[in-house]
């Protein structure tokens, strides 16, 4: 356990913002950076996935802080090439990305749209237009929880790189327990 990393560094959260409107994207980037967050941008889902993949695959990618994954993803829904919903599903399907909180930022504000988004499982749904305050309010809570979890898990398992190994360990243990229980059941 490397506690020196943890105690020394408290990096600002990384937020991935995906939106096809450049003006809007720059506006959101401004707001987030003014609040001290680090910002990744992408103009569509495909682009965003590239960046993410590069991050967890440890590849060099331009404009990205390569040794970490975003702590939060903000995504528009109506985007070319890959829309927000698809992007979301791809994200949650990925074990490396599944844990990242996901907030939809979208002009699609009908109740059906909102319901759909929620059913998908997004953590939050922000309808445009919104003010910077609205945005910050949404993300702060999520980031705090992320921070808490990181603290807890790092306490538990050290750095986050170990979290994967911890998970594996738990899985193996669970498998052993099931095998034993099953054998016992067969005997009985």
């Amino acid at each position: 356990m490397d506690s020196t990393e943890q105690t020394n560094q408290k990096p600002s959260p990384l937020i991935l913002v995906v939106d096809d409107n450049l003006e809007f994207l720059s506006g959101v980037e401004l707001t987030l950076s003014m609040e001290g967050y680090q910002v990744w941008t992408a103009t569509n889902g495909q682009d965003a996935l590239y960046k993410l993949r590069a991050a967890f695959q440890g590849k060099e990618e331009e404009g990205a802080n390569l040794d970490r994954l975003p702590d939060l993803i903000l995504a528009d829904i109506m985007m070319p090439l890959m829309d927000g919903h698809n992007f979301y599903e791809r994200v949650v399907a990925n074990p490396y990305l599944n844990h990242i909180p996901f907030i939809f930022l979208t002009a699609k504000s009908s109740p059906e749209d909102i319901r759909y988004g929620k059913e998908l499982g997004a953590d939050d749904y922000l309808t445009k237009p919104f003010s910077p305050e609205d945005l910050l309010a949404s993300i702060r809570g999520k980031l705090r929880r992320v921070e808490q979890r990181r603290t807890l898990t790092s306490q538990l398992f050290g750095d986050s790189s170990k979290s994967g190994g911890v998970v594996l360990l738990i899985v193996i243990l669970a498998a052993l327990i099931i095998a034993v229980l099953g054998g016992l059941y067969l005997f009985l």
Binding site: F24, S109, S131, P132
Partner: peptide, 19 residues
């Protein structure tokens, strides 16, 4: 949607300006 797009920028940027 189209109307909301410029509006969302306006709102955001105006908000940014104010903040």
């Amino acid at each position: 949607h189209e109307l909301k797009t410029p509006l969302s920028v306006i709102q955001l940027q105006a908000g940014n300006l104010l903040r």
